[in-house]
Design a protein around this nucleic acid. Sequence first.
DNA 1: GCAAAAGTGTTCTCCCTACACCCATGA
DNA 2: TCATGGGTGTAGGGAGAACACTTTTGC
Lengths: 238, 238
Amino acid sequence: MNMSSANVSERAQQPPALAISTVIFALRPDSERTRPTLWLPLVRRTRQPFRDLWALPGGPLSATESLQDAAARNLQETTGLQPSYLEQLYAFGGLDRSPSQRVVSIVYWALVKPDEAALARETENVRWFRADRLDKLAFDHNLIVDYGLWRLRNKVEYGSIAYDLLGDRFTLAQVREVYEAVLGRTLDPANFRRHLRATPDIEATDEYLQGVRHRPPRLYRYTGAAAQRNNGPLSQSG
Amino acid sequence: MNMSSANVSERAQQPPALAISTVIFALRPDSERTRPTLWLPLVRRTRQPFRDLWALPGGPLSATESLQDAAARNLQETTGLQPSYLEQLYAFGGLDRSPSQRVVSIVYWALVKPDEAALARETENVRWFRADRLDKLAFDHNLIVDYGLWRLRNKVEYGSIAYDLLGDRFTLAQVREVYEAVLGRTLDPANFRRHLRATPDIEATDEYLQGVRHRPPRLYRYTGAAAQRNNGPLSQSG
DNA sequence: GCAAAAGTGTTCTCCCTACACCCATGA
DNA sequence: TCATGGGTGTAGGGAGAACACTTTTGC
């Protein structure tokens, strides 16, 4: 810590390091609440700086893969997760993000379906946290998560992102719960239902959810093409 | 060109280079049309690769400045422009963006006001082009410009971006012309006017535009805080 | 039967659109 | 006085909010 002034002149010489990180959101049942809430996996830092603090999964950019591929790979390596949605979030390049070296992080955000999230390995150094109950993370990662939540909220309001947080069969109430968890407010069930029925790409099946202590709700499928929902620049050059 | 295979193995060794580029939009009167249209300044490449093709202004990231500062600086250096709006567009990191070296470009987009744009120096190697009439640019810069146009369209529909393309006094019809130029379609003058009058932050002055061959329109000012309209992550760490 | 959530119907309001119409100026 | 765009009024349609109501299950 007392070498900071030495670092400043030192850092001016070397080029900034380039890293890829990922904010991963999944819907998980909360033991305290009856509704599912948003969670994200974090990794514990085993080295300085910020040793023992929790941080977003990430790593350096390999020279032979695209940014998106790099994000998907280190997400796979650290958490074992395969995302159903993956998009660039933002490039963070402030001077004081890391105390030791200047680091420019290109951050992606991902959504994973519940069955995938259940398979995710949790170890001593990888754990899930509620997105709205994070304490101090390493680097500027609190800021990054908050921005990811902001983007998620914006996308869910006008887009078909919600189905990337659900399995292939779901009730309309489950879709509403996704919206409520993301937006942080309740929605009128009747109007929300009508809204969904009016949109295309949501197809009723002849199956019903069993084992509930009330009238069994019908199950639906999402038929929109997942690959075409990524509205960054075309997949090339990303 | 015949050294491409040698480059591939060579490139796998060295880390990707990091560069900053900027897409700059301004409203300019078009000699052919009566309405102003969107233009952007480009620089002619004087070196390989893509020598003599036009490209976005840009350069390497200096080690001691933030990403946003770097974008503002090279925009100032190459075109002499000071933007009224500057925001990160996207990070482009595809493997084949540059034939020689792997380059990751963090691209910003900017809006400049007409008086600023008029001051911009045009030289042999810096020239303005109509945004909707670009021929083949260097690298993947056509893709980047198209994505910038897409973002501009999205922001103008729900946001107060239009005033960054106008001077400090403007008629409501001029605002409408900005929308029409950006969105590429005409809008109902009556309804658009009502819409603007209903929004806050647009204040009527007691001045009128003179020298028109019809009823002189009233001039308005925008009173919204320009600095608070940047809704990326907070200005730190950007 | 009762609770609880699924699912339907209805009304009200607000916003957007289209379009008719007057106003003020230069030529 | 005529052409042109500034500026106002107004009627119709569509989407969303609020909420009453019926249906179907488990207990």
